[in-house]
């Protein structure tokens, strides 16, 4: 579904991501794990059009989307939830969700799917997004991303800034999406949490893929255990 080959990207002609290749198949949950500053965010931003790609190619359902603008990639069926969330602070929850369906009017059906997933949002539908807690904003960001009925959901650090309990809840919601057949690519530092959800994973360090394998393989890998799972 998504094939990324030898992608390099960065800021001001200095590449931070160096020749990364990954692929995501339909129905899979794929994790990119790595420490802070490993290049995960830069990589996802380049894939979704928020940063220019300096080399390599991104193919989605067989066609190149490497040079498309953010909104063109969004309309192709990829919803990206960045770590910064980028909600509309002065709009209500309902208005934020409505824009997720742009350029169409929001469908009541899809909105109730989102409300089933995050009942909290239904309670707060008239509240301005900017006045909500971090956890609620994260729910809204994911909810808004789902309103367009995407075929691929890409998330950057969905647990950033969340208390452990909320982080676990966020992954329960992602697990529910997965059972509905959603394809998910997620970058995460909370390795145990993301490996409990993912089918496969890639380990990224200093802008390159160091390791890859099934979630079980990664969990048992001595390097991963030492570096990310806190096991000596």
């Amino acid at each position: 579904m998504l094939e990324i080959s030898d992608l390099s990207a960065g800021y001001d002609s200095k590449d931070v991501v160096l020749g990364v290749s990954i692929d995501v198949r339909e129905g899979e949950v794929v994790a990119i794990i790595g420490s802070n500053g490993a290049g995960k965010t830069t990589f996802l931003k380049a894939v979704c059009g928020l940063l220019p790609v300096s080399a390599g190619e991104v193919r989605y359902e067989g066609r190149s989307i490497t040079d498309l603008a953010i909104h063109e990639i969004a309309r192709a069926g990829i919803s990206f939830v960045p770590a910064g969330r980028h909600l509309f602070p002065e709009m209500t929850v309902a208005e934020n969700l409505g824009l997720g369906a742009y350029p169409h009017r929001p469908e009541a059906g899809q909105q109730s799917v989102v409300f089933d997933l995050f009942p909290r949002l239904a309670e707060r539908r008239r509240q301005a997004a900017g006045t909500m807690s971090g956890g609620e904003q994260q729910m809204l960001a994911v909810g808004r991303a789902l309103m367009s009925r995407p075929r691929l959901l890409i998330l950057d650090e969905p647990t950033a800034g969340l208390a452990p309990k909320l982080a676990a809840q966020a992954y329960e919601s992602l697990a529910a999406l997965r059972t509905q057949g959603m394809t998910i690519l997620v970058a995460e530092q909370q390795v145990p949490l993301v490996l409990s959800l993912a089918d496969r994973g890639y380990v990224m360090e200093t802008g390159a893929i160091q390791l890859q394998g099934s979630a079980a393989e990664l969990r048992d890998n001595p390097t991963v255990r030492r570096a990310y799972l806190g096991v000596a």
Binding site: A74, L99, S148
Partner: peptide
């Protein structure tokens, strides 16, 4: 209107609007 809300979305967060498929 859908278009009017899209205008407000660009004013409030341009990247967020683009992520929703709005062309600024």
């Amino acid at each position: 209107t859908v278009t009017g809300r899209a205008v407000r979305s660009v004013i409030q967060d341009e990247v967020g609007a683009q992520l929703c498929g709005v062309n600024p």
